[in-house]
């Protein structure tokens, strides 16, 4: 078995079009996944999904698993690779779990946002499967609450639906700039504004609402 299988490149065909269809080596994919995971972990709101990376990594995992099944049980390489696989699997499932948790917590808010996005023709943040899950979850909550209020004389009140649970986008996050960013506006409580320039690799503790767009368009990452 090739011991360096995880380092092998994949998808050699693909052009450098505007969409990020650039070929990544497996190591790069891993790095992207780690970054996506950390961003998702620390951002208070849900971020655009990275299912292409997830699927790529899962493909790699099952590929290596297949190769491993040919290796004898007592081989040292097997346990080394197995450990690495477990780590990868943890990474992916933790990422997906974090997203699910956010979807559940802010379900009505996220559904509303997604609807607005698709009306405006923007790309959805949720993948189709996640969207299905979110819809089912929202409906089941609706159903449960309506069931509980059956005793109500007259019309069952529905005002609670207007009180959405929203993520606190003013929470503070540690951010690291990936390239030079100029003119980050920082809004202070007393309506004052401050402009900061960030150098590549510099780190800053900042309120998420000021830098959310930088995370989403991949100019910086959370740490």
């Amino acid at each position: 078995m090739d011991i360096n299988i995880i380092e092998n490149t994949e998808n050699p065909q693909s052009d450098e079009s505007e969409y990020e269809e650039i070929a990544h080596t497996a190591a790069e994919v891993l790095q992207l996944m780690e970054e996506a995971w950390l961003n998702e972990k620390f951002a208070p709101e849900i971020l655009p999904h990275k299912y292409d990376i997830v699927e790529c990594l899962l493909g790699q995992v099952s590929h290596v698993e297949e190769n491993l099944s040919n290796v004898h049980n007592d081989d040292l390489r097997r346990s080394l690779h197995q450990m690495e696989l477990d780590r990868l699997r943890y990474l992916v499932s933790s990422y997906l779990r974090l997203r699910l948790e956010k979807i559940e917590r802010f379900v009505y808010f996220i559904l509303k946002q997604e609807e607005e996005r698709s009306q405006k023709g923007e790309e959805n943040y949720l993948n189709d499967n996640e969207l299905n899950f979110a819809k089912c979850y929202g409906q089941s909550l609706d159903q449960h609450f309506t069931d509980q209020l059956q005793f109500w004389p007259g019309n069952i009140p529905a005002e609670w639906k207007n009180q959405l649970i929203v993520p606190n986008i003013y929470s503070y996050v540690f951010m690291k700039a990936k390239n030079e960013i100029e003119g980050v506006m920082i809004n202070h409580v007393n309506e004052e504004e401050e402009v900061v320039d960030l150098k590549t690799g510099s780190q800053i503790l900042i309120s998420y609402n000021n830098v959310g767009h930088l995370i989403r368009n991949n100019q910086s990452c959370l740490i």
């Binding site: 997830v54 699927e55 899962l58 493909g59 099952s62 699997r89 992916v92 499932s93 997906l96 779990r97 699910l100 499967n129 996640e130 299905n132 899950f133 089912c136």
Partner: peptide, 14 residues
């Protein structure tokens, strides 16, 4: 249903 739908081969147990 959601867990089955992840990935290409039979989903991931989260």
């Amino acid at each position: 249903t959601y867990m089955r739908s992840i990935g290409d081969d039979g989903g991931v147990n989260l």
